[in-house]
Nucleic acid binder design. Sequence first.
DNA 1: TGTACATCAGTGAACGCGCGTTCACTGATGTAC
DNA 2: TGTACATCAGTGAACGCGCGTTCACTGATGTAC
Lengths: 209, 209
Amino acid sequence: MSEAKSADSRPYHHGDLRRALVDAARRLLEAEGPSALSLRAVAREAGVSPAAPYHHFKDKAELLDAVAQEGWDILQEQMKEAKANDQGLHQLTSLGIAYVCFARENPALYRVMYDATRDKEALPEGMSSDKDSAYCMVRDTMIEHGADPTQEIHLELATVAAWCGAHGLAEMAGFRQFDHLKAALGGERPFFDAVFSHMGLFPSSHDDC
Amino acid sequence: MSEAKSADSRPYHHGDLRRALVDAARRLLEAEGPSALSLRAVAREAGVSPAAPYHHFKDKAELLDAVAQEGWDILQEQMKEAKANDQGLHQLTSLGIAYVCFARENPALYRVMYDATRDKEALPEGMSSDKDSAYCMVRDTMIEHGADPTQEIHLELATVAAWCGAHGLAEMAGFRQFDHLKAALGGERPFFDAVFSHMGLFPSSHDDC
DNA sequence: TGTACATCAGTGAACGCGCGTTCACTGATGTAC
DNA sequence: TGTACATCAGTGAACGCGCGTTCACTGATGTAC
């Protein structure tokens, strides 16, 4: 797992240690879980002394922020792709499935993404009012599919409701209790699809079959 | 905050240290957050030596389990009460609101309740198949209100969808981003109600006004 | 009623550990002349 | 083209800390006779 190279193969100066540290953090995260994510462990994983990260991050929290930020970037990228690969009413469900799949494939990263914001009492990056934030992508998709953009409160509530459903499913998806449902429905994605279709907001991709 | 009493006011034997430790843990939890919940801190808060808890719990995890268990008990109690105080279609929304309010009032406890199960890869207590589990309460309420109990998969999916929505909202409810929505709607409970009503599964208590 | 004794539930000191962070340092790099 | 020097990005040892857990202990309690 470790990226540490033998002493003579790596030059004294790293090149892009900041990048390497964030990568190391992500590797550690998925291999050992969020509780293993100490600054020292990240430095170790990157093959560097415990003091080295301080040339790139003010403190541990700043490193975690960078990791979380990258998580949101990737999630948004994957949602964008999912939306582009689908049309019509299914787009909203595709966004939801992309969201939940991301969380399933990167459970520890997903956790860090929310923890980083909870500690700061700030917004998760993905829910900011930036045009490309994941949150705005969901809201805009709703508008494209007929939600009335002038009914602001209604629109926001619908977006929040969808987001809550997706976040809830993302955190629950791993419970064993659902194994038989996944089996009965033919896999994880059909399971997600079916749960979304029961949420009212998300048209199921099977509704029109 | 500390329950420690002066040396001569507390007898050498505590009486019910197990109880006192769980209480101390809950106090610590809400005052300092989940990260402050060490075994030593709990013992300190209970006014007892760091070794004392080992006469009542095998290790730290077992204490945490007891705390989580108590959390589920309280949540289930509050949901039961909420259901009893409401009738008809609103019952489901009442359950949801009780759930989210509990999480809002005990955010750190709520976190521990889910963390304790994640670590064991087991089910959360509240989602067990016990007759009085919170999960079964939601499912049974759906049946009472017309869901077809013979369509097992459909019924389970609907319950899961509702649970996901509630969990998601429970974790999001504190974000500042929603302050203006809460204000516009007249408080937290109306906000929760409105989000639930956008989830399709939960009839809003305003739908028939 | 009094006493010996087993059991239970505490104490407090100690263990080894990994953590975040700081510090004086040094090796590599790039720029001015 | 060569050299002096400032700057940057690493090192490795050290700091103090709080943690979970163990250990030999001791004070209080309850029971048998």
